Simulated assay, not measured.
Amino acid sequence: MQKRSRTILFVLCIFLFLLAAPTVLLYFQGYRFDFEKKELVQTGGLYFKVLPASSQVYLDGDFKKRTSGFTGSVLIENLIPREYQVEIKKAGYHSWQKNLEVWERRVTEAKNVILFPQNPDFTIVNEMPKVEMMATSSDKKKVIKANNYEIRVLFPEKGEEVFIARFSKKIGNIFWLTNHYLIFSVGDKIKISEIDNRDKINIVDLAEFKNPKIFWDKEKKDLYVESEGKIYLFDDLLP
């Protein structure tokens, strides 16, 4: 290669480097081009902590990541700031769905996601322990406020109230499943509801019995159902 050609090639490489360097630098600083807004924006992220572990996370219908097999957590980075349709699912479990907003330089969190089994295997038992039904959550920060057809949750320290749901059939016993989920019966169905009211509240139908009366043993994490003179036990509700 002649000296003139080498010089031209060297100058061209320098020019391309100087042209690409700002773009590469902005990329590693978390900037992306938003084609809808037609502008350069700084990205955000989504963080999830899910039970059971190794669940799949989808954004706008596309698979993104699987949660950790050990911690059940996952961080999805470099997202253009906007609203995303989130679905978390695992075979054999009800999926969790919610629209969540992502902002620049911020991570939106959903740290209390639980997927519940679609076909719980109840066994018949002879007796059940004495279970106390408490209106106040274990962390003492939330209180159930309910009547025969409606459920709300109060946050006394914040002075806030979250509307959970209204039903056409009578609500039976209500228990705190965790500090972030309620379990209760409505008519013949046993339901579980989260209390996260960002977008829609996820409520799943866990099982169906004739006029069930439910009892939740939070110490042993056992669910008892009394129906038609029999007592049923499901001891694998929480992973």
Rank of each mutant, 00 (worst) to 15 (best):
I144A: 00
Y27Q: 05
D236L: 14
L115V: 10
N112A: 10
Y149R: 09
F15C: 08
P120Q: 04
S138K: 12
H180G: 09
T43C: 03
L19N: 09
K64V: 02
L9I: 12
I8W: 00
G69L: 03
W176I: 00
S73H: 11
F163V: 07
H180C: 14
E101F: 13
Q2S: 14
P120Y: 10
I231L: 09
G30N: 04
I8F: 01
T108Y: 08
F175K: 05
Y181P: 01
Q97F: 05
K98Y: 10
R82S: 06
S185W: 01
F175M: 04
Y224Q: 03
K49R: 14
K220L: 12
F15Q: 06
F70D: 08
L233K: 07
E132H: 13
Y181N: 07
T23D: 09
A135D: 12
K64T: 03
K3H: 15
D121G: 11
S68R: 07
S168Y: 11
I190R: 03
E160P: 06
Y232R: 06
D222S: 13
V204R: 00
E150A: 10
T7M: 12
L177A: 07
D222N: 12
V153N: 00
W216G: 00
T178C: 04
R198S: 11
E157W: 10
K210N: 15
E77Q: 14
P22L: 07
Y224P: 05
G229D: 02
N202H: 07
E36M: 15
K141A: 13
F35S: 14
K218Y: 00
L182H: 00
K3R: 13
N78P: 06
W176Y: 02
D188K: 06
F167N: 05
S95L: 03
S95P: 14
S73P: 00
I76C: 03
I190L: 01
I144P: 00
D121L: 14
N147I: 11
I8S: 04
K220H: 13
Q85F: 09
Y47C: 02
E104C: 14
N179P: 01
L9D: 09
E208I: 09
L154N: 09
K140A: 05
V57H: 00
S227F: 05
V57A: 02
I214G: 05
I164Y: 02
K191G: 09
Q85K: 06
L177C: 00
D139S: 07
D62Q: 11
T23W: 11
I183T: 04
T23Q: 11
K111D: 10
F28R: 06
R152A: 13
M134H: 13
K213Q: 08
K189C: 06
Q118Y: 15
T71R: 15
V186L: 11
I114V: 08
L40I: 13
G45I: 04
Q42M: 12
F234C: 05
F28K: 08
I151S: 02
K169T: 12
Y31T: 02
L25R: 15
I201S: 05
R6W: 10
P156D: 04
L237E: 00
V131S: 07
K89D: 07
D121N: 15
W176E: 01
I195S: 01
C13T: 13
R105W: 03
D222Y: 12
F48Q: 02
E109M: 12
V186S: 10
E157P: 05
F48N: 03
I174M: 04
T123W: 12
